[in-house]
Design a protein around this nucleic acid. Structure first.
Lengths: 338, 338
DNA sequence: AACGATATCGGTAACGTTTCCGGAAAGAAG
DNA sequence: CTTCTTTCCGGAAACGTTACCGATATCGTT
């Protein structure tokens, strides 16, 4: 089947390529009759403009979406929500998944050159010293899921959950249930970063009660089922008197619950566990997972709005904190009396 | 930061744009000294060729990857594997996720026009009457996860698990464990399609024992946790004497196990369940899920090879069946004596 | 009738790259 | 010293689209 170009369509419709381009872009200055005729021909021939040619010329906006990890369901649903919120936009999205080893800032660099991206949204990226690249990119970006306020860049906004208070809340819930020794599984916390804040809030609550956190109860652990499983296997074998676990990701929590079972402990009777993110799956596990649910749609919505404001109105970067929800389900209970 | 073009690089290196293009494309006919100089300048300026311009001109191969559903972990890992198997290829991949409502064949059509795609891989697509579009596309495609043999198209290969024998195997395992009434949760089986074959094999095994399948025990159900949950809730409320479930997707199985628990039944004591796909999660659920594990990497590998053979050597379409593995874990047991 | 305003359209030059063709330089062979 | 290869390189024409500028036709006003 021949792939028609705009020129073919123009010939068939007896108009100029310019006119075809105009109807393609829904410009007002074309006679309704002409428009209809051209549209009919386009329809009849399944014509779709060539994206490359368009992107080459088009000075219009292309937005890059960089997602860390194809297998993380939370990040995936966030990405999905962003894409759907932006579906009505005339702007084009180009989405790029990167794996654990890849460097998102290098990817960002490549995207600006290779695709002339005019704005970017990062999903699931950590903020470290390499963010400086973003600065030199000179295009507006927004980080989701992390608070980029500390980085203080003139072109980076961010939207994240209020990690500190959620960390505090989790600790309080566990403390109120009667737990005294609580393990925390997080992943390489970087100063000022969301995970660090979460942990900070957690410690705050402990401090309020005159308790202090034993650094030995913190385990660094990638955000995957497997990592949660092995970490818990190791940790709980050596720490039989820990009665609760705060996993900073649902996947970790679920892997850990399995590990606990493998160790002959049951959840929540022997140890309580609370996750973070609120992925779909958390409602279907046995036991159902108590977790902190991030407002995916709100994060998505505000992210694209923030980016658009910066791109179109040249708005200053903002760092917004949204409210998360503590979902009390079946994986938390009072500790067994000993 | 200025985005340099090939012309800028050429000027800086004192060579022509043609030469820069040559080193970019690793062509042999350029002096090593020149090559090195150009490469250095490219490196120094973080230059990356503009993809649109390249795609516009390039007659070279671009491969489309159409994935049905961003949230399906099995499909996601398959896509990931395909992408990594093809990473070494000079060919470019453009991957497109589509949601449940979208039409993959329309998407395919768009991709060929819009991106001049020269070959395509479908991940998780069902084959129905709309495949005829593929025929008219006149570019080689390969379907994964479904057997496209029945469609008999001159340009479509496929690689799938030997569904019929796996369906049979599942039934036999369940039958051997002592189950007599087994429910099946699948999704809109289309004649000749993989799901239908799976079901066929399942019935074959029953027939071998002189048993027949009661159509009422088949439930149509989307492949999601939620759908598995609600289907199981409905089905098992009305059918208390069914002692086993064959879910044609792990997600459905996991949702169903939760539903069973909600109904006060436990797995595997009251009802056994076996899933399909062998997603990561199936090793971490409670109970661990007995399932049929699809060889993701092999499917991925053979898919890209099949496609490449068709694209480059004009090979005829083939339909390959790969072996799956029955993973016996904790969700199957003998039925309770009544 | 002449005029400007407005609506509608077309020609053409870009966008950044690759490809085709041809030319210069440098050896090799006679 | 020719002539022929081989190696390396550059000019210019595409690829399909959009942007810019200008042209024409139509229409209402004076």
């Amino acid at each position: 089947m021949k792939v028609y170009t705009i020129k073919d369509i123009a010939r068939m419709a007896n108009v100029s390529v310019t006119t075809v381009s105009r109807v393609l872009n829904r410009r007002p200055d074309v006679n309704p009759a002409t428009r209809e005729k051209v549209e009919r021909i386009i329809e009849e021939n399944n014509f779709v403009g060539n994206k490359n040619a368009r992107g080459l010329k088009q000075t219009s906006e292309v937005i890059g979406l960089i997602i860390r990890g194809r297998s993380n369901p939370f990040l995936n649903s966030l990405a999905e929500s962003i894409l759907s919120h932006a579906a009505s936009l005339p702007d084009n999205f180009i989405t790029e998944y990167i794996d654990e080893k890849a460097d998102e800032f290098e990817t960002a660099l490549r995207l600006t050159h290779q695709n002339k991206v005019k704005g970017m949204i990062f999903v699931g990226s950590l903020i470290d010293e390499r963010v400086s690249v973003i600065h030199s990119l000179e295009i507006p970006v927004v980080f989701t899921t992390v608070n980029a306020k500390a980085a203080a860049m003139p072109n980076a906004s961010s939207v994240a959950v209020d990690d500190r208070s959620m960390g505090r809340l989790v600790a309080e819930e566990l403390l109120n249930a009667g737990h005294r020794r609580i393990a925390v599984f997080g992943s390489n916390p970087i100063a000022g970063d969301s995970l660090a804040m979460r942990f900070q809030g957690f410690c705050d609550a402990l401090a309020d009660r005159g308790l202090s956190f034993n650094p030995d109860d913190y385990r660094e652990c990638r955000f995957s089922l497997e990592a949660g499983h092995t970490s818990a296997l190791e940790y709980f074998r050596d720490h039989p008197d820990t009665t609760a676990l705060f996993a900073m990701s649902d996947a970790v929590a679920i892997g850990a619950i399995r590990a606990l079972k493998d160790l002959g402990k049951s959840v929540p009777e022997d140890v309580s566990v609370v996750g973070f993110d609120g992925i779909d799956l958390s409602r279907y596990t046995i036991p159902r997972l108590t977790t902190v649910e991030q407002p995916v749609d709100e994060i998505a919505f505000r992210s694209v709005n923030l980016l658009l404001d910066m791109m179109e109105k040249g708005a200053a970067p903002r760092h917004v904190l949204v409210k998360a929800l503590y979902r009390s389900r079946d994986s938390v209970a009072a500790p067994r009396r000993s």
